[in-house]
C-alpha cells in the first residue's frame, strides 16, 4: 500500500525506497503492541483450607484485556490480554488452596455439586507503566481485583435455569491488589518485559490472596461453620 502511494508520486527510485523506509518506521512507531500474557504458574505450597468452594470465572474475567489507545498521544498503543493467563493462574492456585474446588461453568454444575460457597473473582483494574512514561528503568503492571464469596443459592436463577450475578449479596467481599515489575536490563523487547511484569503481578496476586485470605472479614466465621455462611 505504501509502495502504491509512492508510485503515484514523482520521485526517483532511491528516494522512493528511502521514503518507504521512513514511512514504515513511522507506522511501526505508532502501531499497537499486542501481548497475550503467557507464563508457567507453580502450584502453591499451602495447607488447604478445609472448605468446598465453587469458582465462577465470568466471561469478562476470562476475556479480560487492558487496552490503552495512545494514538492521540502519538505513542505506541498497547493491548495486553490477561484473561487466559488469569484463568490458568487461578485454576492452578485455588484447587491447592481449598480442600475441594469445583469450577462452575453452568447452572447444572451448581445443581450437581454441593459447595459451601462460590468465589467470584473480578478484575477491577489493570494499569501499566513502561520506562518511556516514568523514566524509571522498570516495566510495571498493577492489578486490582474484587473478590466475592457468596452462598450458592444467591446466584441460582431457578425461573430461567441460569446463573445470575444480579443483586447478589456476598457474605465476604474484598479488594486484592498485585504488582509486578521487570527491569529493562532483563529484557530484549517491550512486549517480553510487559509479559513478564504481568506474570510477576499474577504471582504477586496469588501471594497476596494466600497470605490475606484468612484475615478477610467474615471468612474465618465461614470456615468455622461453612454450612451456614453469613
Amino acid at each position: 500500500m505504501v509502495g502504491r502511494l509512492l508510485d503515484s508520486m514523482t520521485l526517483g527510485r532511491k528516494a522512493q525506497r528511502l521514503l518507504t523506509l521512513i514511512t514504515l518506521i513511522a507506522l511501526a512507531a505508532c502501531s499497537t503492541r499486542e501481548v497475550v500474557v503467557e507464563g508457567s504458574f507453580p502450584t502453591p505450597l499451602v495447607d488447604p483450607v478445609p472448605v468446598s468452594v465453587g469458582i465462577l470465572f465470568t466471561k469478562e474475567f476470562k476475556e479480560h484485556e487492558l487496552v490503552d489507545d495512545a494514538t492521540g498521544r502519538g505513542e505506541v498503543s498497547w493491548r495486553v490480554s490477561t484473561g487466559t493467563a488469569q484463568v490458568e493462574f487461578w485454576s492452578t492456585l485455588l484447587p491447592a488452596f481449598f480442600h475441594n474446588v469445583v469450577f462452575i461453568e453452568s447452572y447444572e454444575d451448581l445443581q450437581t455439586y454441593d459447595v459451601d460457597a462460590v468465589l467470584i473473582p473480578k478484575v477491577a483494574d489493570v494499569q501499566y507503566a513502561i520506562p518511556l512514561y516514568t523514566n524509571v528503568k522498570v516495566y510495571e503492571i498493577w492489578m486490582r481485583y474484587n473478590l466475592a464469596l457468596v452462598e450458592p443459592e444467591q446466584i441460582i436463577d431457578k425461573e430461567n435455569s441460569t446463573i445470575s450475578l444480579e443483586n447478589i449479596q456476598p457474605f465476604a467481599e474484598w479488594p486484592l491488589t498485585a504488582y509486578g515489575k521487570t527491569p529493562t536490563a532483563f529484557m530484549q523487547s517491550d512486549s517480553d518485559a510487559v509479559n513478564l511484569a504481568a506474570v510477576m503481578a499474577l504471582r504477586d496476586a496469588g501471594a497476596n490472596f494466600i497470605t490475606s485470605f484468612l484475615r478477610v472479614p467474615g471468612v474465618m466465621d465461614w470456615i468455622d461453620n461453612p454450612e451456614e455462611a453469613q
Binding site: 502450584t43 505450597l45 504477586d204 496469588g206 497470605t211
Partner: peptide
C-alpha cells in the same frame, strides 16, 4: 522459588 511458592516472592 517455584517449589516454595508463594513464600519467596518479593512480597513474602
Amino acid at each position: 522459588v517455584d517449589a516454595m511458592y508463594p513464600w519467596f516472592e518479593p512480597r513474602t
